[in-house]
Design a binder for these strands. Structure first.
Length: 473
RNA sequence: GGCGCUGUACCCAAGUGGUUAAGGGGAAGGUCUGCAAAACCUUUAUUCGUCGGUUCGACUCCGACCGGCGCCUCCA
């Protein structure tokens, strides 16, 4: 039984989809004004864990992630570079897709863009106007928060306190400081669209209400995003959607913890961030994913080089086994002897972990347990047969690769094995073997040391020497 | 001030009202090896921020206190 911690109720609840066998989920995506940082990546990767696990369980998942392609930051960047907002959005949308592909994040079913849903947004605002939840002041349309009596139910805030503690700008023509923009009147030099209220552009929150409704329905299963979106963004989405439809907006709300640097939230405004693409230059997607999987999605997580390289070391354990299994099978492992191994237990443990509010930390521990158990079998049974190798590989393929994405069987030996460079290395290795046969260890060590200095690490096996290229620096 | 999260070994980090408190890194020992490295195996918290309470029994529930963080303004 899958349980999910629901921000709305602050409890773990059994997950029951609206349509049996099907899950519709929405995750707040990027504002495409810059490269996303590794903290943003955590949200995308955690969403990916969730989506993949739901699919593992057999659900048909419809997953929408919006791209906010019109907003203040985009406009600012466009003006600074003297280019069109559209150009900024296109550049960084493309970068976004490149980066999530490198992080081995499965593509969402749909990536709706705000600018392609202007009519849907206008219709939604009209509906809110009709229902008395929106008011127009000189071409700026605001949401009347007072009218929505359950405002604050997601974030646990009450409107009285919000007003007194409000730091919201006061100079706007709003009736109430809590009211927020649905439609912003166009200012000089800004992109705009025509609307019943004049030229302008959508407010930030309205696009998610409009697009989720269009692509997932008026009520859908899961809505997720970073902790900082709980208020006001998600609170406002609920206010908009429920006031328009009169129906419950979302059944399960999930929120992700932040990635911190030295215990402080990583953010663009603090300047303490690394872009995902920079981190990817130093660590593989699998390392980053394992690192994120080793802690609960809801809590804070510190980001540092030490921590990442720890994850890298750990990942090697899994990768080594994956390689061994893969190699043996490709080399035609003989039928050998049958091994009595309780695969079902490891599947059950993995599922129990993930069923418990997507406990990836526990799930990755199960995978490490599995790796140790399989290694032990292999150490004790050199005759272990093909069947065992197949089943072990299948396990890793379904869990470590399929759900967590911390193994990629298709790129285990990512080497361009036909290059001249590799031929030369082979040549040296053969010379070294000759030297070793003649007990000329001075020479064999010299070859090893000099190759190591070039970033090629030799590993003497029982009957062959293998090598690994270590990235320079 | 309001709302929420959090404090588990050297570091990161799961977890449970009572049986052996996961897993990863690190460290130590071992197997293998000409020596290394790698790989694999083994070991590594009588204890879970502090102090009280509930309980036959709490690290787990409750309360207070101390510490860290986030949101309340754009933010994953």
């Amino acid at each position: 039984m899958l349980t999910i911690h629901n921000t709305l109720t602050r409890k773990k609840e059994e997950f029951k989809p609206i349509h049996p066998g099907e899950v519709r989920m929405y995750v707040c995506g990027p504002t495409v004004y810059d490269y996303f940082h590794i903290g943003n990546a955590r949200s995308f990767i955690v969403s990916d864990f969730i989506r993949r696990y739901l699919e593992y369980k057999g659900y048909k998942v419809t997953f929408a992630m919006n791209l906010t392609d019109i907003d203040d930051k985009i406009i600012r960047k466009a003006n600074a570079g003297n280019i069109e907002a559209k150009e900024v959005a296109e550049t960084f949308s493309a970068a976004f897709f490149e980066d999530i592909a490198k992080l081995k994040i499965k593509k969402a079913t749909i990536y709706p863009k705000a600018t392609e849903h202007i009519q849907d947004i206008i219709n939604l605002i009209k509906k809110l106007e009709e229902n008395g939840y929106a008011y127009n002041i000189d071409g700026n349309v605001f949401y009347n928060v007072k009218k929505f009596t359950t405002y604050g139910k997601l974030s646990g805030k009450n409107t009285e306190e919000l007003e007194s503690g409000s730091r919201v700008e006061i100079n706007e023509a709003k009736r109430n400081p809590l009211d927020f923009s649905l439609w912003k009147k166009a200012k000089e030099g800004e992109p705009y669209w025509e609307s019943p209220w004049g030229a302008g552009r959508p407010g930030w929150h309205i696009e998610c209400s409009a697009m989720s409704c269009k692509h997932l329905g008026e009520t859908f299963d899961i809505h997720a995003g970073g902790n900082d979106l709980i208020f006001p963004h998600h609170e406002n989405e609920i206010a908009q959607s429920e006031a328009a439809t009169g129906k419950k907006f979302v059944n399960y709300w999930l929120h992700f913890g932040f990635l911190n640097i030295e215990n402080e939230k990583m953010s663009k405004s603090l300047g303490n961030f690394f872009t995902a693409r920079d981190v990817l230059k130093r660590y593989s997607a699998e390392v980053i994913r394992l690192f994120f999987s080793q802690t609960n999605y809801a809590g804070p997580l510190n980001f540092s080089d030490d921590l990442l390289s720890g994850a890298q070391k750990g990942l090697e354990k899994i990768t080594n086994l994956a390689e061994k299994l893969d190699d043996e099978l490709k080399a035609g492992r003989p039928s050998g002897i049958e091994i009595d191994f309780d695969f079902a237990k490891f599947y059950a443990d993995f599922e129990a972990a993930m069923d418990d509010d997507f406990n990836t930390s526990q799930a990755s521990a199960v995978i490490f347990d599995f790796v140790r158990a399989v290694n032990k079998v292999l150490a004790e049974n050199s005759e272990a047969g093909k069947r065992f190798f197949e089943k072990a590989k299948e396990y890793l393929a379904k869990t470590a690769e399929g759900v967590l994405g911390i193994v990629d069987f298709s790129s285990l030996h990512g080497d361009d094995s036909k290059s001249l460079e590799n031929d030369l290395i082979e040549l040296l290795l053969n010379l070294r073997i000759e030297a070793k046969k003649e007990k000329n260890f001075a020479l064999s060590d010299k070859i090893r040391n000099e190759l190591t200095a070039l970033g090629i690490v030799l590993q003497d096996g029982k009957d062959k020497t293998t090598y690994k290229k270590v990235k320079a620096e």
